[in-house]
Design a protein around this nucleic acid. Sequence first.
DNA 1: AAGACGATCCTG
DNA 2: AGGATCGTCTTT
Length: 175
Amino acid sequence: MISENSRLGADFFRRDAVVIAHELLGKKLVRVFPGGQTKGYRITETEAYCGQEDLACHASKGLTKRTAVMFEPGGLVYVYLIYGQYWMLNFVTGVAGDASAVLIRGLEGFDGPGKLGRELQLDGSFYGENLQTSTRLWLENAPPVPEYHSSPRIGIHYSGEPWSSKPWRFSVQGQ
DNA sequence: AAGACGATCCTG
DNA sequence: AGGATCGTCTTT
């Protein structure tokens, strides 16, 4: 029996990616695995990617097959394969056309976007997954964390200033 | 049709 | 410090 607390609704996601990125800290990510085992994970680290003008955001390349979901309204999953090995988990944010998203970089016990993707057994079938209606991946509300830390995003040196130094990476204190 | 390059991680 | 590994995008 799955006990579902308050699932985060569409309104939560249809806002600014930077606000959502730090509000997601401490929230509970729920995964129902094939076979039925269900696990919940507290989010510990995130990064915001803010639309077509943000040269670190994949959507800055325009609307392509890969980035199309980012142009949808917030509340969908954006996954992509990096280095041929790791599925990266993002949630689309903002209203239609904002082309923004939040990357989940850390879960409690699973530090690093590649490692958490492996733990969650992500694959390309999660592209476009609806967090409102999905029966295998969603988010539940939880109290805000008392303190968080912000710093520049990782691995986006190529985007140049000012994007490479925007403090849009958020982590719970002590992580 | 072919080449370059990652929002990473692991090993030596 | 360097290799794994492959989908996407750019260039021919």
